[in-house]
Design a protein around this nucleic acid. Structure first.
Lengths: 89, 89
DNA sequence: ACATTAATTAGAAATTCTTCTAATTAGAGT
DNA sequence: ACTCTAATTAGAAGAATTTCTAATTAATGT
């Protein structure tokens, strides 16, 4: 896990778009899938990578799985990028 | 290329370490390679990905190739990450 | 022209990623 | 128990990534 999984998760455009969709509030797997021309199983794989990186958290509500953005991990990535720029850190 | 190539380039720990080494100033391919337990051809592949993403620029000095960090592209990545967090942007 | 140094490109092997279809799990309602 | 909806896991195909060794390019100096 750790920062490697985070940057790996951020490397795919579909996964970055998932995060962008979640920044306005939680969404179910099905709602998220509706924004892509990909099958649900394919999206599930992307959800898994985001979950392993802890960029998202999941909560079940009835038959739906609701995905939430984890902003604290996003901030870790931000800090990691900043540290590549500043000679101080 | 664009932002996809940038995030793809940032996804590998070796490439992030290369950028971290360059933040203190330009280094030659050989000097960079000295920091890794990898062959020079392997490092060349990583340099190419960073160059394609324009995260680094190259300049030849004699028989050496000097790599420079391109901070403006790093800022693009920063902005891209920030936009995943803020509901405004 | 030749040799040396620095670094690359070429080609191949092993692994990982992305995507699909088919099958399975999980919960809600009748 | 059965059915329906929501979403997952399993398995496989094709593409891309990472790494190596061997060969090549490029510039410098004798």
């Amino acid at each position: 896990m750790g920062i490697n999984a985070v940057f790996e998760a951020l490397s795919h455009p579909v996964r970055r778009k998932i995060l962008a969709l979640l920044k306005n509030g939680p969404l179910s797997a099905g709602e998220l899938a509706g924004h892509f021309d990909l099958t649900k199983p394919t999206l599930s794989v992307h959800f898994n990578k985001l979950r392993e990186a802890e960029l998202v958290a999941v909560e079940r509500r009835g038959t739906s799985l609701i995905y939430h953005l984890n902003t604290s991990i996003l901030e870790e990535a931000l800090a990691g990028l900043l540290s590549l720029k500043d000679p101080e850190t």
